[in-house]
């Protein structure tokens, strides 16, 4: 599961929907992997304003990845002066699209429910009493 997707996932329980602690989910015992994907500068640029940068920072911290800048990179920083992809964009692409959680657990900060991740697929099925 890409880190990009993790930036949008919340706890599936109805009781957690309204609480702030249900997002982001916290990775636990996570194993990361790198999958190479063609870079799509426009997509990264479009997704940038929609990312929760604070959540992104806690996520990288919890996964032990290099620290991110304090603020969301500005759209101008993504391209160099001659229109090429800048280092910022390349780093973002590697972080968001290529880094993914292969296995481990995702823990809700509110109810503490653990969602298992296996082979990159998270199990969000809830037992019926928890829906």
């Amino acid at each position: 599961m890409k880190l990009l997707t993790l930036n949008f996932l919340t706890c599936a329980r109805k009781t957690c929907k309204s609480t702030a602690a249900a997002f982001p989910l916290h990775p636990k015992d996570a194993e990361l992997e790198q999958i190479e994907i063609d870079m799509n500068p426009l997509f990264v640029k479009n997704m940038l304003p929609r990312l929760e940068w604070e959540a992104m920072k806690t996520l990288t911290q919890e996964l032990g990845l290099p620290a991110l800048p304090a603020e969301t990179p500005a759209p101008e920083e993504l391209t160099t002066e001659d229109g090429e992809a800048s280092q910022v964009l390349k780093d973002l692409h590697v972080l968001l699209m290529e880094t993914s959680v292969a296995s481990g657990k995702l823990v809700c900060g509110n109810c503490g429910h653990e969602y298992a991740v296996k082979e990159g697929i998270a199990n969000f099925l809830l037992p019926s009493h928890m829906v």
Binding site: G120, A122, F124
Partner: peptide, 21 residues
């Protein structure tokens, strides 16, 4: 396939934060 996948029951809701897609 290239997309991310979740094992989830859509009848239990859609576990993404508002305005994701």
């Amino acid at each position: 396939v290239e997309g991310d996948m979740l094992l989830a029951d859509i009848g239990q809701g859609v576990p993404f934060r508002p305005g994701s897609f």
